Simulated assay, not measured.
Amino acid sequence: MPSEITLFVNPGAGRGRGARAAGPAAGALREAGYQVRTVVGTDAADALAGARRAVDAGTGALIAVGGDGQVSLALQAVAGTGTPLGVVAAGTGNDFARVAGLPLREPAAAGRTAALALREGRGRELDLGRIGDRWFGTVLASGFDSRVNDRANRVKWPTGRLRYDLSLLAELGALRPIRYRVRLDDAPEREIEATLIAVGNGSSYGGGMRICAGAAMDDGLFDVCVVGPCSRTTLLRVFPRVYRGTHLGHPVVTVHRAARVRLAADGITGYADGESVGPLPLVAQTVPRAVRLLV
């Protein structure tokens, strides 16, 4: 049983919750007999470099403390290495932890969960999505939702959630169907019009929006949720149902399953785990059992 593990901390996550969560999580791990070292970077690139050094040095586990952005960084360091991943969810959305059934905003409980899994030598082998050399755990988003993200990222004021709410209203006013070129596995490429296409390794994004409600993180397949062309009125009616996953029954929504998805569309950015991965076209591939999660 490796005695030293690494806390990979984003102190700014959740308006400072990440910094406050590190202490209780570390305390729980030390009580279980582990030596704990902490990695905090000056920026995302520096943090990832530190996490990779810890993995290369043989740390017993990498424990991400923060939100989905921090988990995404941690995945870049541990995927395919055999180093277990723990998650202390202390961000705003926490979709990865939510889908995996881990404690949310309970850092001591999350620390105890990781410690017990390490001590008992257990964990859950999860699939990950991969786009080039970029790994993702939850959802690749493209379309209306990514346009909202694009707009919010351009806005300097207001800050916080209000920035996204105003961006959503602005994009709703400009709503129009997007012409996609889609290829699933080895099937022929198809041209379709859609409001958005989400490729789910996990089921939720955006803080509990179950856009790919049927997706499982260990079945070797993506769930591909296509929201077809719709009016603003229809979108507003369907949107609240996303939190329950009942939108999948609406006639404008279809779901496909595939291990490899190619999406192309003009002027659309892809976001995976809430982080920009660049403009379409993008190819996402499932990688079975790419990470061992401490649960």
Rank of each mutant, 00 (worst) to 15 (best):
C212M: 04
R151E: 09
R122D: 04
P84C: 07
V40T: 14
T246M: 09
R210V: 04
Y164V: 02
G16E: 14
C212I: 15
V295Y: 11
G207V: 04
L235W: 06
A57Y: 09
I268F: 05
S142K: 03
D43C: 08
T246W: 07
A100K: 03
L126K: 03
V40D: 12
G23D: 08
R119C: 05
V226L: 02
L169E: 04
A216Y: 00
R163L: 12
L75S: 05
A272M: 14
S204L: 05
S276I: 05
R15T: 13
I192S: 09
A152L: 07
I197V: 15
V238R: 03
L75R: 05
V36P: 07
V242W: 02
R17Y: 06
D219T: 09
G16R: 09
T42V: 14
G101P: 06
G60V: 11
G206E: 03
N153F: 07
D127I: 07
A213D: 08
A108N: 01
R105F: 00
G137H: 11
G123E: 01
A64E: 12
T138Y: 06
D68W: 06
R176K: 15
A290K: 04
G41C: 00
V155G: 01
I192K: 12
I131D: 05
P240W: 10
T83Y: 09
P279M: 09
N201I: 06
L73F: 07
T286N: 10
R232C: 06
R210I: 07
R119W: 01
G80Y: 05
L48T: 15
A90V: 06
V295F: 07
G207P: 02
G220A: 08
H256P: 03
G111E: 00
G82Q: 04
A28Y: 00
R161Y: 05
R154M: 14
L62H: 10
R176I: 10
R147I: 01
G143V: 06
N94E: 02
R124P: 02
A45I: 13
M1L: 12
I178L: 08
P251E: 13
V277L: 12
L126H: 11
G208T: 13
G270R: 00
G123I: 06
A47D: 12
H256C: 08
G14I: 11
S231N: 10
T6S: 10
V148K: 03
S231Q: 02
E4F: 00
V227M: 08
H250M: 13
A22G: 05
A213P: 01
P2S: 09
R53P: 14
V9S: 14
T159D: 07
V252L: 13
A64R: 03
S231R: 03
V291Y: 00
R244P: 08
G206F: 04
G27K: 03
N149G: 10
G220N: 08
V139G: 02
V36F: 09
C212W: 02
A13V: 11
A32L: 00
A61W: 02
R161A: 12
T233P: 00
H256R: 12
R237N: 03
A44S: 12
L7S: 10
W135V: 07
D273R: 07
E275A: 15
A90Y: 01
N201W: 10
V40H: 11
D219M: 13
L175K: 13
R161K: 14
